[in-house]
Design a protein around this nucleic acid. Structure first.
Length: 756
RNA sequence: GCCGAGGUGGCGGAAUUGGUAGACGCGCAGGACUUAAAAUCCUGUGGUGGCAACACCGUGUGGGUUCGAUUCCCACCUUCGGCACCA
């Protein structure tokens, strides 16, 4: 027997599996299972986090395959983003070249994982065909009024010189570069996600299995609140508590509110203008940081229709222009913020009856706002629209799609979209009137691309539509979607939104694209901190693979913690995994043709298989591996082991360590491939024959354990045996206990204390 | 402030619907093999006391329900994540 040397076997099998197409999805077969992992961004290299993210889904998919499912596990790359464009600026490489080079590197690295993902049939979001259908979808949205041109106070990243969606402003800063985000009035494209707000709200008991934190988080972000629109002499306010209108003692307008100028009295003009001016220069972050209430009076007064009193109108930036009507009625007696404001500025506070019934219109408001979708950058899908002076905005006809990116542009940020710098590309004839017109020089947000890529996966070869309806009908929804928690408010919400839109235009028939969502945690550096170059605690997967092989790395990543967990990488623990594989390798010495699987072993094996099957289904791969170790420990103690025992070990191992499992499978002369075998079954009879441990408690404290055979589990027998037990007798000290027995589980002997 | 998820050995973490707390792995200690070391193998490993048998304590804290609670209920402390002047 030679030594276990991963590098001698891993590449060999990877190539053979690939050549033999052993993981090929059979579109005609039933029993489909669609595993989806968020497509990686083409940043350059796979880091250990990528390995972690894929190790569990891959083991899970392999398990599903062994369980008889026809597994579809496709792959792709999210290619659009600023790093590509910035690399281009810094290193003078074209974004496309930079991106495609990274795709190549990452493809090669994915191969070393020995994953069953299909690397031949990938979606690359910057390819022409993806652009085409991306643009097609955009035009469909435009036709339905979902994509629209709007002007709004938007989040502006001064460094990236582009607009940001609300979901990508984190703590007042740009999600990508961390610059403090400014507010800027910009005309741009929006998607009317607000129209879908109600349908995106998760019901209490959803039909699909998504984590609560996602459901609650999304519902909060959508932030539905029902209330009323009330009129205060021309000022419309939104309130959720119309019943407190009698206690409204003043009105507050947001600084941007158009009525501010109109209402301000001559005496207050300078003060108000100064205040409004000041508020407009504040960034969102500054507004958030300083929660002290500020504001000024307009000098105007309006009638409170319920109390019949004239109440003053103020301007303050604690009222947000973007929410409700940008104006509120302040009820200091019922609202903390209004109270604080009233106290600070000496405004009256009056009791409310909570019984007011003002006249007004019912109104529902949402926290979520329409998704700003256009970016003033080069590296993205061009917005497929033409601006004609005569006809206005005209979509590019389908036959002219895709609108591709011109290779030559000046993409150094200058405040205007880079595409506007290429005249030849920009100028175009209007498809309607044939007159002179211009292309839209903006590109789509990268989150538009990733909102529907898993539909394209099922139709990478199709060029008549974004996807083949029938195939989607057959293969979707996705059965399980693995990804990161950071996409709770962005990507996964957008993906749900797109699915509902697709349903509306008759492309799909379901409401949710993924039946189950599982979110991974993070592998920290060995020092317990987040891995970062500056901290020098980054683990390079290529190095670890070189040292131990891919199987050890996969195994360790599956074993180190639950998929949802976050824990530090341990250079010591991973060597334990290597040791485990070496012990399995060595076990082949004990394999004997004559050896039979005895009853004890059968029972043990069944228990292991049963537990692993149960845990794998629940994606508890760490405990599944623990049971494989348990089985190995058991086999190691035997003098010789049967082929059945050994084969079971290899099949159980195969999802986690596919290469070594295959190699050993071949060594023992079994038919290729171990990955096309049947998952071992549980021998219920053997399990029933096994002896059972019955803990015996006296007054709830464990005093003895009886090892009993299955036919000795009746209450009378167990109690009798327990009472004969010395340790039990000692603690009973002659008393007559009342037995409480749960069959096959536990016996508790209770002595009723005399004082009771 | 609001919402969500957690708090179990030296560490990562187990514990099926309330039923032997600490599986499995790492680390550590002792032993075997070796001239020696590494590797490997064996044994032990929650805490306290005891030579030992054994006893008591023990799942963030304090109460409660129960024959029995890491698991259920109440209050509190605390860590992490999300949202945050949303009217």
């Amino acid at each position: 027997m030679n030594k276990y040397t991963p590098k001698d076997i891993e590449k060999k099998w990877q190539e053979k599996w690939h050549d033999d197409k052993i993981y090929a999805f059979d579109p005609s077969a039933k029993n489909k299972f669609y595993t989806l992992v968020e497509l990686p961004y083409t940043s350059g290299d796979l880091h250990v986090g990528h390995w972690f993210n894929w190790a569990t889904p891959d083991a899970y998919s392999r398990f599903k395959k062994l369980r008889g499912f026809n597994v579809f596990f496709p792959h792709g790359y999210d290619t659009i983003g600023l790093p590509a464009e910035n690399a281009a600026i810094q290193r003078k490489i074209h974004p496309k070249d930079w991106t495609m080079k990274n795709v190549e590197t990452m493809q090669a690295q994915f191969k070393t994982m020995g994953s069953m993902i299909d690397l031949d049939n990938i979606v690359i979001t910057c390819s022409d065909d993806y652009f085409k259908w991306n643009q097609w979808i955009f035009i469909k949205m435009f036709e339905r009024g979902i994509a629209y041109r709007g002007k709004a106070l938007s989040n502006w990243c001064p460094k990236d010189k582009t607009v940001l969606a609300d979901e990508h402003v984190e703590d007042g800063k740009c999600w990508r570069c961390g610059s403090v985000v400014e507010k800027k009035e910009v005309e741009q494209w929006f998607l009317k996600i607000t129209k879908y707000a109600d349908r995106l709200i998760w019901p209490e008991k959803p039909s699909v299995d998504w984590p609560v934190e996602v459901r609650v988080g999304q519902n909060q972000w959508i932030g539905k609140s029902e209330g009323m629109l009330l009129d205060f002499e021309g000022i419309e306010v939104f309130t959720t508590r119309p019943d407190t209108t009698d206690g409204a003692t003043f009105i507050v307008l947001a600084p941007e509110h158009p009525k501010v100028k109109e209402l301000t009295t001559a005496g207050q003009k300078n003060t108000v203008e100064e205040y409004v001016q000041k508020a407009s220069t504040k960034s969102e972050l500054q507004r958030k940081e300083n929660k002290d209430k500020t504001g000024v009076s307009t000098g105007a007064e309006v009638l409170n229709p319920v109390s019949g009193k004239k109440i003053p109108v103020w301007v303050a930036d604690y009222v947000l222009y973007g929410y409700g009507t940008g104006a509120i009625m302040a009820v200091p007696a019922a609202d903390e913020r209004d109270k604080e404001f009233a106290e600070k500025f000496g405004l009256p506070i009056e009791k409310t009856s909570f019984k007011a019934k003002p006249k007004g219109k019912k109104q529902v408001n949402y926290h979520i706002r329409d998704w700003s979708i256009s970016r003033q950058r080069y590296w993205g899908t061009p917005v497929p629209m033409i601006h004609c002076e005569k006809c206005g905005i005209v979509p590019v006809p389908e036959k002219d799609l895709p609108v591709t990116l011109p290779y030559e542009v000046d993409f150094t940020p200058k405040g205007k979209p880079p595409l506007a710098s290429n005249d030849e590309w920009l100028r175009v004839k209007c498809p309607k009137c044939g007159g002179n017109a211009q292309r839209d020089p903006e590109t789509l947000d990268t989150f538009f691309d990733s909102a529907w890529y898993y539909y394209r996966y099922v139709s990478t070869d199709y060029d008549k539509a974004p996807f083949v309806k029938d195939r989607v009908k057959k293969m979707m929804p996705v059965d399980i979607y693995f990804g990161g928690a950071e996409h709770t408010l962005g990507h996964t919400l957008y993906a749900r939104f797109f699915t509902k839109f697709f349903k509306d235009i008759g492309l799909v028939s379901f409401d949710e694209f993924a039946l189950k969502r599982v979110q991974h945690g993070i592998v920290l550096g060995p020092d317990g901190n987040k891995m970062s170059k500056s901290k020098g605690n980054v683990i390079n997967p290529d190095d670890v693979v070189k040292e131990y092989g891919a199987d050890t790395v996969r195994l360790y990543l599956n074993f180190m913690m639950p998929y949802e967990g976050t824990a530090p990488w341990s250079t010591e623990a991973i060597s334990g995994m290597f040791r485990f594989l070496q012990r399995i390798w060595k076990l082949q010495e004990k394999l004997s043709k004559q050896a039979k699987t005895d009853d004890e072993s059968k029972a043990r094996m069944s228990k292991v298989v049963r537990n692993i099957t149960r845990d794998m289904e629940q994606i508890k791969n760490n405990t599944s591996i623990a049971f494989i170790m348990d089985w190995l420990n058991f086999l190691s103690q035997k003098k010789e082991i049967s082929k059945e025992e050994y084969k079971t070990l290899l099949i159980l191992l195969a999802p986690f360590a596919p290469h070594i499992a295959e190699e050993l499978w071949q060594i023992i002369g079994e038919k290729y491939s171990v990955h096309q075998q049947k998952w071992p079954s549980v021998d219920e009879k053997a399990l029933q024959k096994q002896k059972v441990n019955i803990p015996v408690q006296v007054n709830g404290k464990l005093r003895a354990v009886l090892n009993l055979s299955a036919d000795n589990l009746k209450k009378d027998t167990v109690v009798k045996l327990a009472l004969e037990n010395e340790a039990v007798q000692k603690h009973l000290s002659g008393a007559k206990p009342e037995p409480i027995y749960v069959e096959g589980k536990v016996l508790n002997l209770v002595i009723k204390s005399s004082s009771k």
